[in-house]
Amino acid sequence: MPSPHVLVLTGEDDPHADRVGALLAERGARVTVFDPGGFPVSWRVEVGYTADGRMTRLLRGGGEEIALDTVTALWWRRPSPPAPHPELTEPAVAAHAARECQSLLSDLWEHLPCPQLPARESVWRRSGQKASQLALAAELGFAVPDTLITTDPEAFFEFHGRHDGRVITKTFHIPFIEGVGDGLTVTRLSEPVSPRDLAYADGLRFCPMIVQERVDKRLELRVTVVGRRIFAAEIHSQVSNRSAVDWRRYDTGITPHRPHRLPDDVAARCLTLMERLGLAYGAIDLILTPEGRHVFLEVNPNAQWLWVEHLTGLPISEAICEHLLRGA
């Protein structure tokens, strides 16, 4: 039987891929790392069809040729998008070429006959939509925060008043803007609404925003699901003012992280949620309230996990490795 061959789609400097890639190699798997950002400059793609139905799918680059039909599992990590060839100097033409390259790769991955983690691109991109996630979570019996998604300032003021000002806002989809000013990246996490913010509420008409009631927290849970395995971690975010509203303002020197055992019904609900979303991997964010309710926030279908693994000892990398090998 041929050795497993895992194709990893990711950019440079990805310690998560490095960690799992080393585990795969220890188990005898062939690991190919491909960053679409190198296509078409450093890599070439060939897709061929014959009249009798045979198909050829090849990647060439880095001194090797990869027959994609030998790939036994595909892992989406953090690939960068194709960049236009530097010889294309007309911006519109360069942008068109980059879009065409992206379209080819997306179509290519979609039809590879192998398991994919977290899922095929069309599935995991659709699964990341927050409004749909909230609707599904509520359907499955999760408690969810009272939520408004709007571009209407008047609707925002009504929601704000109904909750006596105890509300937070966050971006609808992407929490950062790249290329601001001198090429900076601006990140927008969950923020409480201050009286000063109300003066700028008219800005909602330019872009949708999620507005939610501020849910009291005993602690927060990062629930990483790999296949049918669940790795739940407690984040004691309330011990630090920095992380109290959003634990992504990491304060790991102060904030304890510990393994957590979910109640059986909550664990089953998490697995059903992932199954309905079509994901074999994802990270579910929950709030555990002082009263013991588990409140659903969102699912990240391509989340980081090494920091949880390092702080809690939960063997998430091993589980990803095993899942990719099992898919093979």
Score class of each variant (00 low, 15 high):
Phe156Gln: 05
Phe156Glu: 03
Phe156Trp: 03
Phe156Ala: 12
Phe156Gly: 06
Phe156Cys: 08
Phe157His: 14
Phe157Ser: 10
Phe157Gln: 10
Phe157Thr: 08
Phe157Trp: 14
Glu158Ala: 14
Glu158Asp: 14
Glu158Pro: 03
Phe159Lys: 02
Phe159Leu: 08
His160Ile: 02
His160Arg: 10
His160Leu: 12
His160Ala: 04
His160Pro: 01
His160Gly: 00
His160Glu: 04
His160Asp: 06
Gly161Met: 00
Gly161Ser: 09
Gly161His: 12
Gly161Gln: 12
Gly161Phe: 05
Arg162Cys: 03
Arg162Gln: 07
Arg162Trp: 06
His163Ala: 00
His163Asp: 00
His163Pro: 00
His163Ser: 01
Asp164Val: 01
Asp164Gly: 08
Asp164Thr: 06
Asp164Met: 02
Asp164Leu: 07
Asp164Lys: 08
Gly165Val: 03
Gly165Thr: 04
Gly165Leu: 05
Gly165Cys: 01
Gly165Glu: 03
Arg166Glu: 14
Arg166His: 15
Val167Gly: 01
Val167Lys: 03
Ile168His: 08
Ile168Asp: 06
Ile168Trp: 09
Thr169Gly: 12
Thr169Ala: 15
Lys170Glu: 04
Lys170Thr: 03
Lys170Gln: 02
Lys170Pro: 01
Lys170Phe: 08
Lys170His: 03
Lys170Tyr: 00
Thr171Phe: 05
Thr171Glu: 11
Thr171Asp: 07
Phe172Trp: 11
Phe172Tyr: 08
His173Gly: 12
His173Arg: 15
His173Cys: 15
His173Thr: 15
Ile174Arg: 13
Ile174Trp: 13
Ile174Ala: 11
Ile174Glu: 14
Pro175Thr: 07
Pro175Glu: 07
Pro175Leu: 09
Pro175Trp: 13
Pro175Gln: 04
Pro175Asn: 13
Pro175Lys: 02
Phe176Lys: 04
Phe176Cys: 07
Phe176Tyr: 15
Phe176Ile: 03
Phe176His: 12
Ile177Glu: 11
Ile177Gln: 12
Ile177Val: 15
Ile177Ser: 10
Ile177Cys: 06
Ile177Lys: 09
Ile177Ala: 11
Glu178Lys: 11
Gly179Cys: 05
Gly179Pro: 08
Gly179Ala: 07
Gly179Glu: 03
Val180Arg: 03
Val180Trp: 07
Val180Tyr: 06
Gly181Tyr: 10
Gly181Met: 06
Gly181Gln: 08
Asp182Tyr: 06
Asp182Gln: 14
Asp182Val: 12
Asp182His: 13
Asp182Lys: 14
Asp182Met: 09
Asp182Pro: 04
Asp182Leu: 11
Asp182Ala: 15
Asp182Phe: 11
Gly183Gln: 05
Gly183Trp: 10
Leu184Thr: 10
Leu184Met: 12
Thr185Met: 12
Thr185Cys: 10
Thr185Phe: 06
Thr185Tyr: 07
